[in-house]
Write a protein that binds this DNA or RNA. Structure first.
Length: 420
DNA sequence: TCTGGGGTCCTAGGACCC
DNA sequence: TCTGGGGTCCTAGGACCC
């Protein structure tokens, strides 16, 4: 038996926890660069569109008194930690699935108590400790637990935010009421194709011949359908598997037209990607950089990427930065108004020594590890950006826009809430 | 003027092997 | 007239998730 717990309107709720004056008001959170709406409070949901560009809705939002925030990932990451720690204490085994979601294995809990009651207890504990409200969905498979969670949120008043969907009868009743697009793993494309085949609600999908599904779709959808029938195909992943790639990319505030500025940006992203790589205790051989103009608007689109394969795996920022800049030099073209760039690392190894190559002319760097340790330690203790590479530039004019950023209430002393 | 960022998995097709 | 069969590895692209 699985439970899926997730925080209601997570980003928007994090913003209101320390702002009781916003209670009852519509609140939205914007993506990086104040680009699109990516989270809405319950009050905002009925009339603010998800994923829509902010600039298109600005006047409309102001007119309706909607409070907007730039995204504050430092705050969300810390609040997420508080929620996850609380949940981890209460359940025997769990998997942190995303910043605001956690799957639990309720196998041990099952025989000793009522699952709904247990769900309520989890919910009230998280609320008490973090002031965040979660929904709990319970069922035999992850996909059904997700569906139960959806029901818990949609009918929050009637369900108290907890739905136990372990009875097949209840499963079928709920599935008949929901369109296929609500199922975990079924996005826009597949739901459209299913609907064209006459498979409109979830129950119809669950009752479709598995061979038909396999013939017209991939094994992924086959698993989803089996899960809807109560056959568990997805396990609880208690320990996060190692990553296969690391990406650092950002849109710019405005557009970049000068090579020098782009070099600073690519250098910064490469250096951040290298930090993440060391955080995961990995070494990489594959490094790539990309640049692109905006896909919107009238100007001709240009986007390109280049990559480099090193002979020996590295985690040294200097190697990664220099490779990324060499990639940039291959793809840079004058005359474009660039909107975004990024750096990607791949082909990971758990150590850097690898096989010494007979033809490798670059001798391994001396004391690389020590230097990187110092770099990371200073940036950890005194804040990101304490020590950085000259190539990143000193005044980063292209830095993303965050004009409505809230304080980091829980992670910075200077931002601590004052009580009169 | 202005439209996010970071991941995963699967499949098909090409190149190559014996 | 007629040109095999079985396999691996890699990559690009598509789909999905939050």
């Amino acid at each position: 038996m699985f439970a899926l717990c997730d925080v209601n309107a997570f980003y928007a709720s994090c913003e209101t926890v320390f702002r009781p004056d916003l209670k009852g008001r519509p609140v939205v959170v914007l993506s990086n660069n104040d680009g699109c709406v990516i989270a809405r409070s319950a009050e905002a949901k009925p009339f603010v569109k998800m994923g829509e560009p902010y600039f298109k809705q600005k006047d409309f939002l102001r007119h309706h008194g909607v409070v907007c925030f730039s995204s504050n990932y430092e705050l969300y990451a810390d609040m997420s930690n508080r929620v996850m720690t609380t949940l981890e204490e209460m359940v025997p085994r769990c998997e942190i699935y995303s910043i605001d979601e956690l799957f639990c294995d309720l196998t041990g809990v099952r025989h000793c108590r009522d699952l709904t009651e247990f769900g309520r207890e989890i919910r009230s504990t998280v609320l008490q400790r973090t002031h965040l409200t979660i929904g709990v969905g319970i069922a035999q498979t992850k996909t059904l637990a997700k569906l139960a969670n959806h029901a818990a949120k949609r009918w929050q008043k009637q369900t108290g935010g907890v739905v136990d969907l372990s009875s097949v009868e209840r499963q079928r009743k709920l599935m008949a009421a929901l369109p296929v697009s609500e199922v975990w793993g079924i996005g826009r494309r597949i739901s459209k194709k299913l609907e064209e085949m006459g498979i409109k609600n979830v129950l119809q999908l669950a009752d479709t011949d598995i061979r038909f599904i396999r013939k017209h779709f991939s094994v992924v959808l086959e698993r989803t359908v089996r899960e809807l029938r109560g056959e568990a195909c997805l396990e609880l992943e208690e320990f996060a598997p190692v990553k296969h790639e690391i990406i650092c990319s950002r849109s710019f505030d405005g557009r970049i037209t000068e090579y020098e500025e782009m070099r600073q940006a690519v250098c910064s992203y490469a250096s951040r990607a290298a930090e993440k790589l060391r955080g995961d205790h990995q070494y990489c051989r594959f490094i790539s950089a990309f640049v692109k103009t905006s896909p919107f608007g009238p100007e001709p689109y240009y986007g390109n990427s280049a990559s480099i394969k090193l002979l020996t795996p590295t985690q040294d920022s200097r190697d990664i930065i220099s490779a990324a800049i060499r990639c940039l030099d291959v793809i840079w073209k004058d005359g474009h108004r660039y909107q975004k760039a990024g750096v990607m690392l791949g082909d990971f190894y758990s150590q850097g020594i690898a096989q010494l190559n007979l033809f490798d002319e670059n001798a391994p760097r001396k004391n690389s590890q020590k230097l990187m340790d110092v770099l990371d330690r200073l940036n950890a203790e005194d804040g990101r950006g304490t020590l950085y590479f000259a190539g990143q530039g000193i005044q980063q004019q292209w830095q993303m826009k965050r004009e409505m950023l809230s304080p980091c209430y829980t992670t910075r002393y200077a931002d601590l809430l004052r009580v009169k």
